[in-house]
């Protein structure tokens, strides 16, 4: 007997909490606090999604939304200022926007009666295209994790483009923020108000030793996530983000100099491009083998196994490409944001 409550009981408090955190994150005047609350908000979201069976999404949100995003916001605030000035006035404008937004919300809710029942397995979303993936993933691609097969094969083009998005973000943030030493003198107009360093984590022995201990395990886990993405939650994105986070942890607990002495900026940026390049090259190889772009099945001539295994291996290859790009772009974005583009010292 199904419970009579129309939604899962566990979700109800979580959903309310999410709204609460959102409101708090936006109303706190200390920006650092807002960033932390926003991180908590993301974690709540992860739980909700995991509860709905979207483990991969939850995994990604935990790594990306709660983890990396929060770090990005914190490093920005570290470089600037955490306090918001109280400014009078502007209420009329805020109220006006409030009214507009409320009207928009009402408009959105007006479609509610039209929606299929909650969790209905026969709703159009669940019954139109989706069943194909569930029934054909194994024969087509030999990948039990449906999310991985849809992500990297059926809709592999989306994923390529998504990697490109990360790539753009990386080179974009580099272009916006990076001040190369040789150029410091040229860049006259937009200089030079640096916030004082308010907190220096580099002198904490405990933090250093703890992270030194954790980083290898994180990286091992990340490699597992990438390689085992065919069979368990995870894949290139999640693994890449964790790998990136492990290096970010190093950068935070030691300092940027320490990190950059091991990973030079040039190699970081080249690796970011390499990942996308790998993905595109796999697709291109399919093209040259006579198939359509990203049709890994045609790679059976060079990869072991039949078509389905070729697809499975193709998926692994592109996941590795995704992992490389995501890992190094997260790192590159972080070092630029954390040091305000100078790559000298920073969070």
């Amino acid at each position: 007997m199904m419970p009579s409550l129309p939604i899962w009981q566990f979700d109800l408090p979580l959903l309310v909490l999410v709204v609460l955190f959102a409101v708090v994150a936006l109303s706190i005047r200390n920006l650092m606090g807002a960033a932390i609350v926003f991180g908590a908000y993301s974690f709540m979201m992860c739980l909700i999604w995991a509860g709905m069976g979207a483990v991969d999404v939850a995994f990604t949100e935990a790594a990306v939304g709660a983890g990396v995003s929060t770090v990005f916001i914190v490093s920005t605030i570290y470089n600037t200022s955490a306090t918001m000035k109280r400014r009078p006035g502007g209420m009329a404008f805020k109220l006006f926007i409030g009214v507009v937004v409320t009207v928009a919300g009402g408009f959105l809710l007006s479609a509610l009666p039209d929606f299929p029942d909650w969790g209905d397995p026969n709703s159009p979303v669940n019954a139109t295209v989706a069943p194909y993936y569930i029934t054909h993933s194994i024969p087509d691609t030999h990948v039990p994790n449906l999310v991985t097969s849809v992500l990297a094969d059926y809709r592999g083009f989306d994923t390529l483009l998504e990697t490109v998005v990360v790539f753009i973000a990386c080179i974009g943030i580099y272009s916006i923020l990076r001040i190369e030493p040789a150029r410091t003198s040229i860049d006259e107009t937009d200089e030079e108000i640096a916030a004082p360093a308010s907190y220096d984590p580099t002198d904490s022995l405990i933090v250093r030793q703890a992270s030194r201990f954790m980083v290898p395990f994180m990286q091992l886990f990340a490699l597992y996530v990438i390689a085992h993405g065919h069979y368990s939650p995870g894949g290139g994105f999640q693994g890449g983000v964790i790998l990136g986070a492990s290096l970010i942890l190093l950068a935070v607990s030691f300092d940027l100099k320490f990190l950059l002495s091991r990973w030079r900026e040039k190699s970081l940026m080249l690796l970011v491009a390499t990942g996308v390049g790998l993905y595109a090259a796999v697709g291109l190889a399919c093209l040259f083998m006579g198939g359509n772009f990203l049709d890994y099945g045609t790679l059976d001539a060079v990869l072991p196994g039949k078509q389905d295994m070729a697809r499975s291996h193709g998926i692994l290859l592109v996941e590795i490409g995704v992992g490389i790009t995501v890992m190094f772009s997260m790192l590159a974005i972080h070092i630029n944001l954390a040091s305000n583009g100078r790559l000298e010292r920073g969070l």
């Binding site: 295209v129 194909y132 094969d153 059926y154 083009f157 359509n292 772009f293 990203l294 890994y296």
Partner: peptide
């Protein structure tokens, strides 16, 4: 069709 995924007799 990217990846050769057309309507696959679906």
């Amino acid at each position: 069709w990217l990846g050769g995924w057309g309507n696959q007799a679906h």
